[in-house]
């Protein structure tokens, strides 16, 4: 006897997006699926991709990260090579926190120079993250767009700055990460705004804001599930690959506090915290994960099924 399984049949599929690589590198292609994540049903032409953050500026690393990446603090190019090489990151998320007034306060030109340095250190696909300060980022993204010698993605375009960021990206052939604060309507609105500017949809990723485990992860989980279901059900503005940055996992006290004896080894615990955050994102439907611990790359790739 054979059991008839109720497999949902979705009318839509997720747009395919490619993060280009430099000469000799491997581009990352995500999207293209017409089914829910992790399941052997429908078409999943591309597996989710796991990348790593390359930090800049002064770092205050929790114990688990200090041991793993502490040696690369202050040398983003070396860190980038290591991530894309030995650690197996398929793409890099270069965070220009060094340009934040509280994060080193480097100039926009210095930030752009870091981008060039990293791009020449490795051919891996790169997403360049702003520093988070509105005023600085408004100058930083155009400078980065101009300085980058090959196509990258600019993270983030949000409601306020999207004209500027999308304009800079369009002028130099880059992609953008469209950001919204855990809100499906705003995520959709952002993509419609980008479309109004004539931005090519296959150069857009959705960043729904990823809360860390224990600190808002459940909101992200449900928003990603809803974005994915809406996209598969035919809402083209949401049928886009989703990027989850797991950095917030490292803000949790549980991931970083060595003093709680009953919580187990802080190094193992920190890694598990990021891993569990990432696994939940994959289960919800994330297509790209950005992690901070090298061990997370291999661990999360273990569930990046097609």
């Amino acid at each position: 006897m054979s059991v008839a399984l109720p497999v949902p049949d979705f009318p839509g599929s997720i747009l395919t997006v490619t993060l280009p690589a430099g000469p000799g590198g491997t581009p990352v292609t995500v999207g293209g699926q017409n089914a829910l994540p992790l399941l052997p049903e429908g078409e999943h032409p591309n597996a989710p991709a796991v990348g790593m953050e390359v930090p800049t500026g002064p770092l205050e690393l929790p114990p688990a990260l200090a041991g793993a990446i502490g040696a690369f603090a202050g040398d983003p190019a070396a860190m980038a090579r290591k991530c894309a090489g030995d650690w197996g990151a398929r793409f890099l998320f270069l965070s220009l926190a060094c340009c934040h007034p509280d994060g080193g306060g480097q100039s926009v030109l210095e930030g752009a120079a870091v981008v060039r340095e990293v791009l020449s250190a490795t051919p891996a696909p790169v997403i360049v993250g702003g520093c988070g300060d509105e005023e600085v980022d408004a100058r930083l993204f155009p400078a980065v767009a101009e300085a980058a010698g090959r196509p990258v993605f600019l993270s983030y375009a949000e409601e306020k700055n999207h004209r500027l960021v999308a304009g800079a990206a369009l002028a130099y052939g880059h992609g953008v990460v469209s950001w919204s604060p855990i809100d499906i309507n705003m995520a959709k609105q952002m993509n419609l705004l980008l479309a109004d500017l004539g931005f090519p949809p296959d150069r857009v990723l959705i960043d729904p804001l990823t809360g860390g485990l224990g600190y808002g992860m459940e909101y992200t989980f449900s928003i990603v599930e809803r974005i994915r279901l809406a996209g598969l059900s035919g809402d083209a503005a949401l049928a886009r690959p989703v990027l989850c940055h797991l950095g917030d996992a490292w803000k949790a006290r549980e991931a970083t506090d060595p003093s709680e004896g009953t919580w187990g080894d802080v190094d193992a615990r920190g890694r598990r915290w990021e891993e569990a955050t990432g696994l939940a994102c994959l289960a919800a439907g994330a297509d790209l994960l950005v992690c901070r611990h090298p061990a997370s790359v291999a661990r999360l790739s273990g569930a990046a099924w097609r």
């Binding site: 485990l213 224990g214 992860m217 459940e218 989980f221 449900s222 549980e254 009953t262 919580w263 187990g264 080894d265 193992a268 615990r269 598990r272 915290w273 891993e275 569990a276 939940a280």
Partner: peptide, 20 residues
Amino acid sequence: ADPADLLPLLTLRQNLFTDP
């Protein structure tokens, strides 16, 4: 039975089983 495994799993469960 390592708390470094169980604390994250139990937290994940607490998150996802909270009434949205």
